[in-house]
Amino acid sequence: MTEVHRPYVADKPAQRETNEQLRARIPGWGVDLDPQDRPGYPREQPGIETGAHWELPERQEETYPRERSIEHGMLPPVFGTVAPLHGVSGAIKRYAYARYSEGRLAHWLLLIVGDRVEAFGAHVRSFATLHPDLPVKVGAVVAAEVHGEGLRSRFGQRRSDVKHQWLDPVVVLAPWVVSGWVGYRLTKAVLGRR
């Protein structure tokens, strides 16, 4: 006779363990069974006490033109001021913020392009300092691999990510290799004209 599985009939599956067994085995089982005991319920709680003693917060001083999403009706009263926009990457990002809403793919892609342009500039400038950005932070990686037993942690385990972890160095190094090649070709072209 064909075995009939659960969803083909109306009954709910029997619980594997009774509530009493679960309560005995798991400290606190069921203490938040009632949704009223869960702090996220209901999702919206008008009138909740937050500690705010203002209707609209006082406005933080805008010490430089602060970029904002065009979905905002005004500059919000408080904002972060770390790493203001600058240079070419800043121009790209300002355009992304000024032109495209958060609903447009172009908004985010331009921000990501701006990120990579900024990183490239920062790496180049770092070579004029005592702390150059190397393609790989060799000391930290070696230390982590040695202390963390990189080989034992990765191999002989049933891990899915070892299939693609080898791509990480490629992702990190590829822009350096491409930049180096472009730089080499440009230099050669300029010198070749003389």
Binding site: P46, I48, T50
Partner: peptide, 21 residues
């Protein structure tokens, strides 16, 4: 902020007064 439309309803992670970007 604790006082915007969203915070006033407990949706603190959706505050409208702290993120221009």
């Amino acid at each position: 902020c604790g006082s915007c439309y969203f915070c006033a309803r407990g949706l603190y992670s959706n505050c409208h007064n702290v993120n221009p970007n």
